[in-house]
Design a protein around this nucleic acid. Structure first.
Lengths: 140, 140
DNA sequence: GTGTAATACTTGCGCACTCAATTATTAAAC
DNA sequence: GTTTAATAATTGAGTGCGCAAGTATTACAC
């Protein structure tokens, strides 16, 4: 029926589902005044040691370009969701830290996110979710 | 470690991996002069009965908005990768058909795509790929 | 049949993001 | 210690795509 290898078919479904899901989550997070992308940086910062990350690492984990994070973080700094910080050991890197305000918004948004995710993820194998998520993180 | 439900974590990984993968595939398909999104419409048209689809259905399957497909298809029609066609039963719908030229480009791009997909998908469970892809299609 | 709602698609506007090139800084080569 | 290469981030220019609103056309009520 389909002339795709199984890997190709999977990546196709992955990206298409990813697009759909992103758009839906964007809508549900709009209530909190942040985009889904912004939520993702808040989340990864919240998980990071010291709630601080380098911009390049942030880019890779959220699935953006370095350029993309720069543009994304600018307004977030202005709204004081995150704070810029310099690295004494290496003047090239500029670190990003989650602010108190950012932490609070993250907490609120997290609840909406998890709730909506529960709805969207029906039909996925409940037991294997954690395992599968881990595999996806090590992808590409 | 992470205060996410398993569903939430999975959707996060899904969208982030989707972004990364999309960007990579975009690059590899650039050789054929098409974007990854364009490849996806060519692919779905090639699978469709009569190699023809309605724009709304195309939008949903490729993970775009109706507006998005309109903008995407305009240049593709100009390059004659696809052809517009009207539905005699319903004047609202405008059908899109894969052209001969589009079919050819699709065939070429398909090879590159599958090859690259193979590389990108290392670390994913080979046996479960087809099954998982099907589940992702019924997501969101 | 007429009015209302639903569906398919398009368009104006704008934002998010990418790419390529640039700057600043550090690491490596020798 | 220079020179060269590699890394981190930013910026200019441009594109892709979404949203909201608009236009047709069809379906449904009654």
């Amino acid at each position: 029926m389909s002339n795709l290898t199984s890997a190709a078919g999977l990546l196709l479904s992955l990206t298409e589902a990813g697009n759909r899901v992103s758009r839906r989550l964007d809508h549900t997070l709009a209530i909190h005044g942040i985009s889904f992308t912004e939520f993702r940086v808040l989340h990864h910062l919240a998980q990071a040691p010291g709630e601080t990350m380098r911009r390049v690492d942030l880019a890779e984990t959220v699935g953006l370009t370095a350029s993309g994070v720069t543009r994304l973080l600018n307004p977030m700094e202005k709204i004081h969701l995150v704070e810029k910080e310099r690295n004494p050991r290496d003047a090239r890197v500029s670190l990003v830290r989650l602010s108190a305000a950012g932490k609070e918004i993250y907490g609120d948004a997290l609840a909406s996110f998890c709730q909506r995710a529960q709805d969207l993820a029906v039909g996925l194998p409940g037991e294997r979710m954690a395992e599968l998520g881990e595999q996806l993180n090590n992808l590409a």
